[in-house]
Design a protein around this nucleic acid. Structure first.
Lengths: 200, 200
DNA sequence: TGCCAAACGGAACATCGCTCCGTATAAACG
DNA sequence: CGTTTATACGGAGCGATGTTCCGTTTGGCA
């Protein structure tokens, strides 16, 4: 036997081939687009076609349909969480907070179909809410802390409460004017500012 | 043309044949049983087999799968609503109320899988919550009124609130002892009695 | 009893999720 | 560079499921 492979560490990365990595990313993009257009129940074949690969390739990367859904969801959660740092670097504290919450509202609104999948009872989706919380709560928390430190908003607001507030604000958005949610969130931010300089 | 049919009014009933009527009822019973055993995702073929008919017969009565689910749901809601009058006739006010709420709790518990179907976004299920409310709220309301008139429970309890209270009590019942819900409801009834003779 | 529209049964069709395996190729080796 | 080999790819095919179609059966009426 020869086995000159695995030059360095072997733990995490199983040394994927370049084309495999490319297809993986292409698939995630295609899935995001197709889920957005046809819902999470869209056929795997549609996603494969959109990505320009065979179904076999889809199942090589995501053994089950739900794995693909989970991957897309996590990717979107990550993007939303990362946006917090970017916004914080680019805007003053309160505006960063405001823009991020609008961003989060969009995320929730576009993932409505996915949310019903989450509650379908399929154990594949069980760990998702925890992931969602572990990424977004710290993200929002850092924005809140900055705004508080700047003296722009009141103290004592729990990030978890704000997240669920936005989620419930998004609930009735399916038949009213589309900017209803945005206005409600703006109102929320104003509410936060109200007690700004106030002690306790 | 001959057309000697439709002797009397023709509005609602299209004059079904006897065997059709029988199969309809058999199908509803079979569907209830199969849904209870295998969940609402059970194959149509299973239901047809259980009912001893062909799939064509199922689709003659219920053009879509969801129509069958809706029919079963409505039947169960009706049965639960009708139970209110029966219990009211057989037991004193508070006991009738108590027994009905236990009955309602069972209904909610066994329809868990169906509830997730309701929230799936399929427009076929859209009118169901309204039906549910229109039948069960008056049923509970009549029981409440009788108990209030008898001076057994306090006034000012909205039936809608009680219904949703029971629903949320049933929520965490999936992993705790099965009589937990029953005890909580008994507690609710006791709470109602507490202010019994109380004015306003 | 004879007729016929209504109802039935189940084969057949269209899709889906998922598997399998022959083929293509990235990349390590000489 | 060519060779080689493990990796990845493509898509036909399988089993399951919702739904349709149509030849056959049957309830109910004259």
């Amino acid at each position: 036997m020869k086995r000159t492979k695995q030059s360095a560490k072997e733990g995490a990365e199983p040394a994927r081939r370049a084309d495999a990595q490319r297809n993986m990313e292409t698939l995630l993009k295609a899935a995001l687009a197709v889920f957005g257009k046809s819902g999470v129940d869209a056929p795997v074949r549609d996603i494969a076609e959109k990505a320009g690969v065979g179904v076999g390739t889809v199942y090589r990367h995501f053994p089950q349909r739900s794995d693909l859904i989970v991957a897309v969801f996590r990717q979107e959660v990550d993007a939303c969480a990362d946006a917090a740092a970017e916004l914080a670097a680019k805007y003053p504290p309160v505006e960063a907070l405001s823009r991020w919450m609008q961003r989060f509202a969009e995320f929730v609104a576009t993932k409505r179909g996915l949310a019903t999948a989450l509650h379908s009872g399929d154990p594949a989706y069980e760990p998702l809410p925890a992931y969602y919380d572990s990424k977004l709560r710290p993200a929002l928390d850092s924005l809140l802390k900055k705004a508080v430190a700047a003296g722009d908003i009141r103290t004592g607001v729990a990030p978890g409460d704000l997240l669920s507030a936005v989620v419930s604000l998004c609930r009735p958005a399916h038949d009213v004017a589309s900017d209803h949610t945005a206005r409600m969130i703006a109102l929320l931010i104003d509410g936060l500012r109200f007690g700004a300089g106030g002690k306790r």
